Simulated assay, not measured.
Amino acid sequence: MTPLLADPTPGLLRAAPIEPAGHTMTHARLLRYLEIKVHHLIQDQDWDSIRIIGGYDRTAVISRYEKTGKLFNIERPTAEIHGRDLIVKAFPGADYVQHYALIIATYLAMTGRPVGTVTYQPPEQEECRTALDALDLELDGALVIVGWGLQYLAPENGVWTRGPGYAWQRTEVAGRRVVYLGFLHSIWGDVAGRVVARLAELGACDVVYVGKVGSLTPGVEPNAWLATGNTSLVRGAMVSWDDFFGDYAAAHDGVRSGLHVSSPSILLENRDWLAQHTASYAFVDPEIGPMGAAARQAGIRFGYLHVISNNLATHYAADLSNERHSDVLRQRAVLVDRIRTIITGRLTASPTHPLGESR
């Protein structure tokens, strides 16, 4: 079944559920993944219509399933009730709005509820761009480290300064300004590319993204390896960038390097998709490609150093449905220490932009 169907109302698309039997996650784990994402108002009751739009609105109804126990990426899309109709507001990004619409439609189908009620409205480019105007920092040639695990990468005694939807702190490593930047909301897919573009506007010379990728290579155990590289397949085109790490990260034990493919939604990564990509590509996630493309366009360096969190080609106990399990957290703590060591070593070995030097 196609995930995109035209809706009679101009500007809207109807989200059809994916076929769970064809997905790379098992039925039970896919449902669990959806349950931890879907707003409680949708899980608790039926609606005549559910429309997903771009809009960052923390005054709307906040999901009771928002994440706890971490500083960043804790916010889910919010909901606004209009009688028997529900408007779901996701941070403005084409990939994120589509992804969340597919999540809702698939959840409803898997729980035996009507799915024809779900539509989504892709946000306009200008709306997506201006959504990040609130991000305002004096970077002046800094390396900006953005993404996951920042509370463990940043100095333990550092103080986080909060802005609207984000928080940051500064430090200095090997004579280099370093800014740790975390977002409370998701920077899924094309949103992440606009984050890099905005950071370049604000004066960043380098951006490093720390996050999680899926492996497309059979036999690569989750939460035991790091991933890096400098090329991604983005909407059918190969994109390479000036890599902050060069060959440095890949030379370390426990780090795998390879070609990356950008996917707008985990829901679209079924077994047919895997068969088309597994021979040529090593990793998948939604953000790396758009970020690398934005860095190349802006003329700054970009690098990623990610935990391999799941494997689409081989089923393991750990996957995207149980990331808060104690064993997973323990393994990832070891990998975060390794990430911090590699970033520090890269700056110490080659501080190419000394403190105070701007572009």
Score class of each variant (00 low, 15 high):
Thr2Phe: 03
Thr9Ala: 12
Gly11Gln: 08
Leu13Trp: 14
Ala15Glu: 02
Met25Phe: 15
Met25Gly: 00
Met25Val: 00
Leu30Ile: 03
Tyr33Arg: 15
Glu35Val: 01
Ile52Leu: 15
Ile53Cys: 06
Val61Met: 07
Ile62Tyr: 00
Phe72Glu: 09
Glu75Met: 10
Pro77Met: 07
Asp85Val: 00
Leu86Tyr: 08
Leu86Ala: 07
Val88Met: 03
Pro92Cys: 04
Tyr107Cys: 06
Arg113Ile: 02
Val115His: 11
Glu126Lys: 11
Cys128Phe: 00
Asp140Ile: 00
Gly147Cys: 08
Trp148Gln: 09
Ala154Asn: 10
Glu156Leu: 09
Glu156Asp: 11
Thr161Gln: 14
Arg162Ser: 12
Gly165Ser: 06
Tyr166Thr: 05
Val173Ala: 04
Gly175Thr: 05
Leu181Asp: 03
Ile187Met: 15
Leu199Tyr: 10
Gly203Val: 06
Ala204Pro: 08
Cys205Val: 02
Cys205Trp: 02
Val210Ile: 15
Gly211Tyr: 05
Gly211Phe: 04
Thr217Ser: 07
Pro218Ala: 06
Leu226Phe: 05
Thr231Lys: 14
Leu233Arg: 15
Ala237Gly: 00
Ser240Thr: 14
Gly246Ser: 04
Asp247Asn: 14
Asp247Trp: 02
Ala249Lys: 10
Gly254Val: 06
Arg256Lys: 13
Leu259Phe: 10
Leu259Cys: 04
Asn270Asp: 15
His277Asn: 12
Ala282Gln: 11
Asp285Gly: 03
Ala294Leu: 05
Ala294Ile: 08
Arg296Ala: 14
Arg301Cys: 09
Tyr304Pro: 00
Ile308Met: 07
Asn311Leu: 02
Leu312Tyr: 10
Thr314Leu: 07
Ala318Glu: 13
Leu320Ser: 09
Asp327Ile: 08
Val328Phe: 13
Leu329Pro: 00
Ile342Asp: 04
Ser350Ala: 13
Thr352Arg: 13
Leu355Glu: 09
